[in-house]
Amino acid sequence: MKSSLPARPPATGHEARKQRADGAEARAHLLLAALRLFAEKGFAKTSTREIAQAAGVNLAAISYYFGDKAGLYKAVFTEPLGKPCDDISRYQPAHLSLREALGGFISGFLQPLKQGELARQFTRLHFREMLEPTGLWAEQIDSNIKPAHAALVEVLCRHLGVTKADDDLQRLAFSITGLAMQMYVSHDVMQAVRPQLIASPKAIDLFADRMLDFAEAMVSVERVRRATLPPLKKNKP
């Protein structure tokens, strides 16, 4: 039987803004709750029902905002701290000096650490994905990590006068990345041994400045090493 009630008009003005705000808040609550649970229990052992309960939202909200559990997991894996390739514009432009480029790379890499517990949970989630792969980690390597690495290699080639990246230049790029990655891997150790090193955004910025000095020194050592090589070996693939 067809209802005789008039259709509800679309929300406008203040009501529409409130609905959008409520929706954004519900989605954000889901992301944060899911991040914590996925990091603690993994994808397979975490149910959508407990995520919804932890977020304080209706179970149907997961389907509405993310499609399904896999969609929510992918959003959790990629959204909260951004993607490596999002920072390429910080360090790839050709007009940047070596220090400016390395500074852009390192500061972008360490920026998420300023979010404290969120960054720690995100790191745990990545470790768990490596141990209990769903295929998402491999996808992220191809779509985000490889482009970011290639951009750093391009920067190093430009500043070292190398026309084609060889294995040693790749080693240099991975070593510079390793300096920044260690901040995530050793976060709990640093917290136990020397907590003031990462206690605040200002402390993380100071760490980034020192790390930039270390990275520049690594490039300088590689420049000197290459200058001593016979011409035919400088760019050997």
Rank of each mutant, 00 (worst) to 15 (best):
Arg20Leu: 03
Asp142Arg: 15
Phe207Ile: 14
Leu59Val: 14
Lys236Ile: 09
Ala217Gly: 07
Pro195Ala: 03
Phe207His: 11
Ser107Arg: 12
Arg36Gln: 13
Ile51Tyr: 00
Ile141Gln: 15
Gly67Asp: 02
Leu35Pro: 07
Val162Pro: 09
Ile204Leu: 14
Val153Lys: 11
Gln115Asp: 12
Gly67Leu: 05
Arg194Thr: 15
Lys233Val: 14
Thr12Tyr: 03
Asp22Ala: 11
Gly178Glu: 06
Lys233Glu: 15
Ile145Ser: 08
Phe77Gln: 00
Glu15Gln: 06
Ala192Tyr: 12
Tyr64Lys: 06
Gly178Met: 05
Thr177His: 06
Ser4Asp: 14
Met211Lys: 01
Arg226Glu: 10
Gly67His: 06
Ala215Met: 03
Leu96Met: 10
Phe105Cys: 03
Ala28Val: 03
Val153Met: 03
Glu25Ala: 13
Phe174Val: 09
Ala173Trp: 06
Thr177Arg: 01
Gln170Trp: 05
Cys85Leu: 10
Leu125Ile: 02
Ile198Asp: 01
Leu160His: 11
Glu117Thr: 05
His187Leu: 10
Ile88Arg: 05
Ala61Ile: 01
Phe77Leu: 05
Gly42Ala: 02
Asn144Thr: 13
Ala75Val: 01
Cys85Trp: 13
Arg223Thr: 14
Lys45Val: 00
Glu40Ile: 09
Ser186His: 06
Lys146Phe: 10
Ser47Cys: 01
His95Trp: 11
Ile204Thr: 05
Ala203Trp: 10
Phe214Arg: 12
Ala39Ile: 06
Gln191Met: 07
Leu229Gly: 07
Asp213Leu: 13
Phe207Tyr: 15
Val185Asn: 04
Arg90Ala: 15
Ser220Trp: 12
Leu98His: 03
Trp137Asp: 07
Arg99Gln: 08
Arg225Gly: 08
Ser63Val: 11
Asp86Ala: 07
Val219Trp: 08
Pro6Tyr: 15
Ala75His: 04
Ser3Phe: 09
Gln140Pro: 01
Leu113Ser: 01
Gly23Met: 14
Leu59Ile: 04
Ile198Ser: 07
Ala199Asp: 09
Ala11Leu: 13
Phe109His: 11
Ser143Cys: 14
Val57Arg: 03
Ile145Gln: 04
Ser220Asn: 08
Met218Cys: 02
Ala138Gly: 05
Lys69Pro: 04
Ser143Leu: 13
Phe38Asp: 00
Pro10Met: 05
Leu118Lys: 02
Glu139Cys: 01
Gly103Met: 02
Pro84His: 04
Gln92Val: 10
Arg27Ala: 07
Asp167Thr: 12
Ala203Pro: 10
Glu40Gln: 14
Gln115Ala: 13
Ala173Asn: 09
Ala199Lys: 08
Val185Arg: 11
Ile141Tyr: 15
His29Glu: 02
Gln191Asn: 00
Met183Arg: 02
Phe77Lys: 00
Ala173Met: 06
Leu156Thr: 03
Leu35Met: 02
Gln182Met: 14
Leu136Ser: 01
Thr12Asp: 10
Gly56Cys: 04
Ala21Ser: 12
Asp142Cys: 05
Gly13Gln: 09
His159Trp: 05
Ser63Trp: 06
Asp86Thr: 11
Phe105Gln: 02
